[in-house]
Write a protein that binds this DNA or RNA. Structure first.
Length: 516
RNA sequence: GGGGAGAUACCAAAGCGGCUAUGGGCGGGACUGCAGAUCCCGUUUUACGGGGGUUCGAAUCCCUCUCUCCCCUCCA
């Protein structure tokens, strides 16, 4: 099966065909940087991390562009409270949010592929000028520039359709009619808009606005509206029409709807984006996260918490794996219990990797494991081809794991077959952001003092001071004790090793050890 | 009021007309001197929110009712 993606624009699953063969253009809406990034953001960007990886594997190089909104009402308000400049405030949180995302193991684009509003002002002004020149926006006496929704919609309904005849007018993404919406909730008290559905492309500055967040323009001093930056940045980097645009579900309206309108009003081309991808929401205790409800969980706090419970090296892996057990379009009801369960499952996966690594070093017997491995790969790939179905891919991984463990138990999987199986699950797992760290190697690391102390304690001689030298010696001593049915000494060695952080297990194929 | 998503066993979560999903928990068995790991079985003879219907056959399609969440204001 070829790769299929659910296209929100057409509301159906479609085969993914890039505009330029073998290359993909992907724009993902980035963060507004004014405060801590939270686990909802983490879910969204984890989803796109995997989507990008699968596209790289299946299609080719992905040009991933992700903006940073560093001018915005909330940034201005927060900076004012703290008495700092808006740009300084934004720069601080930009760096902090990026650091947290990287801690999560998410690749955030850099440089030109991570455009900021503050460094794109001249291009944004020209973009707005273009929309005005095309007759789809108007300036007001207050120095605001608004997008003219009725004018654009009339034009779009008549002229803008995609290659399949699918309409691309205002409301075509979010499936709503601005004429009906206008009659509803929104009552602009002191707006100089012509129509309630019109939205700001450029906001004229107030007298008390910080000079740091104002720029000169043909309409006087001011700053860009919220949506315009993405239109400019996406088309500037990826062209007037490109493959994929993504973000959280909450951005469908108004942000993405307006982004489409602006872009198509400027370029005259439709569709602006072939395929729209939206990630499901992350709720906590059944409800959307919000500070007023007190269920707001920052990424920092979540990772800190996981580090305490599962170790520094594991926290980010656990969180990403937890997210990926649910399909990217489904909602997640976040729970600590779910996180701990994910940690257990992940540990088993790592344990199987370690066992395969050991088995690979042993002489091989004739086995049929190559075909079992190929079957797994096929199942894994068709899962991800089906709209990046990570839960199905993970189920395939666990089924494969069970058969691997069975074969390892019986000793029938060893040598090149084991190496091949290990290589396969690691290659597949990496698409899911798993197994970013190598299998814990048995041996080379220096033994900690607690372990070194065991050699004299049990009167064994060692061939060195590495972990493996110590453990080999202890295992040999224990084997001798067991042969003599000296269970007391055998258990004492096992218990002492455990206290030092090393678990000894008696498997059907002999003793094995691993770090706790 | 308008738009959308959903309700699956103890919990999480796939499946979207016939084929044991999967993970966690709990219980049992095999292996073992013990422990752990692993594998097997059970928890699931109606697991599919309630009630109708279509069909040889429905968790899956249709109708209807109940409930939940999201968007329509800033939001990933």
């Amino acid at each position: 099966m070829a790769l299929h993606l659910y296209n929100v624009r057409t509301r159906r699953k479609e085969p993914f065909v890039p505009l330029r063969p073998g290359r993909v253009g992907l724009y993902v809406c980035g963060l507004t940087v004014y405060d801590d990034t939270h686990i909802g953001h983490a879910r969204t960007y984890t989803s796109f991390e995997v989507i990008r990886r699968w596209l790289e594997h299946r299609v080719g190089p992905v040009h991933h562009v992700q903006n940073v909104t560093d001018v915005d009402d909330k940034i201005l308000a927060r900076a004012k409270e703290k008495g700092v400049s808006p740009r300084a405030h934004a720069a601080e949180w930009d760096a902090r949010c990026r650091a947290e995302m990287e801690r999560l193991g998410i690749r955030v684009p850099v440089g030109a592929d991570n455009p900021h509003v503050t460094t794109s002002i001249p291009d944004i002004v020209r973009f707005v000028e273009g929309i005005v020149a095309n007759g789809f926006a108007y300036a007001t006496a207050a120095g605001n520039v608004y997008f003219d929704v009725p004018a654009y919609d009339a034009h779009a309904a008549a002229h803008l359709k995609d290659a399949n005849g699918h309409p691309c007018g205002y409301g075509s993404l979010s499936n709503r009619d601005y004429k009906q919406m206008a009659a509803g909730t929104r009552k602009e008290v002191e707006s100089d808009k012509r129509h309630p559905a019109d939205f700001a492309l450029w906001k004229g500055a107030d007298a008390d606005d910080h000079a740091d967040a104002n720029w000169t323009s043909p309409w006087g001093r001011g700053r860009p509206g919220w949506h315009i930056e993405c239109s400019l940045m996406a088309t500037r980097a990826l062209g007037d029409t490109f493959d994929l645009h993504g973000g959280g579900q909450d951005l469908i309206f108004p942000h993405h709807e307006n982004e489409i309108a602006q872009s198509q009003a400027k370029t005259g081309k439709a569709p602006f984006v072939q395929t729209w991808l939206h990630t499901g929401f992350l709720n906590v205790e059944g409800e959307k996260m919000s500070k007023s409800l007190g269920n707001f969980i920052t990424l920092r706090a979540c990772l800190d918490d996981l580090e305490k419970a599962h170790g520094i090296g594991r926290a980010a892996d656990v969180l990403r794996f937890y997210f990926l057990q649910t399909h990217y379009r489904s909602k997640i009801d976040f729970s600590r219990k779910g996180l701990d369960e994910a940690a257990v499952a992940l540990k088993r996966l790592d344990e199987t990797r370690a066992r395969l690594h050991e088995a690979a070093a042993k002489p091989s017997h004739a086995s049929t494991f190559v075909s079992a491995t190929a079957e797994f790969v096929e199942r894994f790939e068709s899962a991800l081809d089906d709209d990046v179905h990570t839960p199905q891919a993970i189920a395939a991984l666990f089924d494969f794991q069970r058969s691997l463990n069975g074969a390892l138990d019986s000793g029938s999987l060893a040598g090149p077959d084991a190496a091949h199986a290990l290589d396969t699950i690691e290659r597949c797992g990496r698409v899911l952001t798993l197994f970013q760290r190598p299998v814990p190697q048995h041996g080379s690391a220096a033994a900690p003092p607690a372990l070194l102390a065991l050699a004299p304690q049990f009167a064994v001689s060692t061939s060195g001071t590495s972990e493996s030298a110590l453990m080999d010696a202890l295992l040999a001593a224990r084997l001798a004790a067991r042969a003599a049915k000296d269970w007391k000494r055998s258990d004492a060695i096992r218990d002492a090793a455990k206290s030092a952080g090393y678990l000894i297990e008696d498997a059907p194929t002999g003793q094995r050890w691993r770090k706790a």
